[in-house]
Simulated assay, not measured.
Amino acid sequence: MRRVRGMKAAALLLAGSMALAACASDETDAGSGSGSGDGGSAAGEELMVGLAYDTGGRGDKSFNDSAYAGVEAAIEELGGEVQELSPNDDGSDRAELLTQLAEQGYDPVIGVGFAYGEIIGDIAAEYPETTFAVVDSSVTELGADNLTGLLFAEEEGSFLAGAAAALKSETGHIGFVGGVENPLIQKFEAGYVAGAQAVKPDIIIDTQYISPAGDFSGFGDPARGQIVAQGMFDAGADIVYHAAGGSGQGVFEAAAASGGRAIGVDSDQYETVGDPALQAVIMTSMLKRVDNAVESFITDYSEDAVEGGTDIVNDLSTDGVGLSTSGGQIDDIQAQIDEFKQQIIDGEIEVPAIP
């Protein structure tokens, strides 16, 4: 039977009696009906996926949910189950999450978010028979042949978001809210600013981060996200783009309160936000297809086709990033967006990854 299995927070005694706190989802069905795929590894064993989330866990309507959607799609096709774990608020237990999943026999094990990049190489070395992947962190210099990096050209998709914002802005003033000020989120900012300036060189662009480097709370604090975005709307911005995970909910709320518009990130947030009042302000979303990357990796694993020690980069040429069209708010500028996309793919526009 095909199934997706979550797990509530559990305590795990590791070496030195270290306590592990981890959050996971309740058990849910991933599919039903007659016939379940053989799935699993190349040896025909049932697929058992371990998924360690980034800050906020499943339910962020963004990055983590996209990763889960990829696992869910793979399991629907291949059969098997998934174990989900989330880090504590400060993320200090990420190594323990990966260790727990490997110890319990989950294979492959996927770390969602760049923060796992600091420790996943060590865990992969301790469990050489387990296949690991990490989203948003390069693995090429780690020397682990059982580890794959799933990367994205966020700056390319964000360039299109910036172009769309500049084309649709009525005030000539837009904003960007980042969750945590680090090189990854700065890629979103860099592309967004470049895209907006490609359309309107003198456009005013406010940029602000919710938390500094090393403080991951900026990805899970909608109240602070709302305060930051509200300041931009009050200053004259009429469109604000967020790359702030769960804090993006606050950006949407600020847009709704101000009569402005917002640009979502990672998932098609017009479809996932839930509240019609917030849905109405989401002009588009910069799609970062974590779901596709995760599903493809699991499929490769099931076919014994994973090439470890390498990075897989998802960009505009592979539709790994792009813009959503739900709601129809950018239909009138789609031709210009498509032209910019092709120029980037053809190398006519080189998008910066650093602000």
Rank of each mutant, 00 (worst) to 15 (best):
T272W: 09
T272L: 10
V273K: 03
V273D: 00
V273S: 02
G274Y: 02
D275C: 08
P276G: 01
P276I: 00
P276Q: 07
A277S: 01
L278E: 04
Q279R: 14
Q279C: 05
Q279S: 13
Q279W: 08
Q279F: 08
A280I: 00
A280Y: 00
A280T: 02
V281R: 00
V281Y: 01
V281M: 01
V281A: 05
V281L: 13
V281H: 04
I282P: 00
I282K: 00
M283G: 06
T284H: 02
T284D: 00
T284P: 02
S285V: 08
S285E: 01
S285M: 08
S285F: 04
M286W: 01
M286F: 08
M286P: 06
L287Y: 09
L287E: 11
L287T: 13
K288P: 11
K288D: 11
K288C: 11
K288M: 06
K288L: 09
R289P: 12
R289W: 07
V290S: 09
V290H: 06
V290W: 06
D291W: 09
D291L: 04
D291V: 12
N292Y: 09
N292P: 02
N292H: 14
N292L: 15
V294R: 13
V294D: 10
E295A: 13
S296G: 12
S296M: 10
S296F: 04
S296T: 15
F297Y: 15
F297S: 05
F297T: 11
F297W: 04
I298Y: 07
I298G: 10
T299L: 15
T299F: 09
T299E: 12
D300A: 14
D300P: 03
Y301K: 11
Y301F: 15
Y301N: 07
Y301H: 13
Y301P: 08
Y301R: 08
Y301S: 07
S302I: 06
S302R: 08
S302N: 10
S302P: 06
S302H: 04
S302G: 15
S302Y: 11
E303R: 15
E303V: 04
E303A: 15
D304W: 09
D304Q: 08
D304L: 05
D304P: 08
D304V: 07
A305Q: 06
A305N: 12
A305V: 05
V306I: 06
V306L: 02
V306Y: 02
E307N: 14
E307L: 09
G308C: 07
G308V: 08
G309I: 03
G309A: 12
G309S: 11
G309E: 07
T310C: 01
T310S: 14
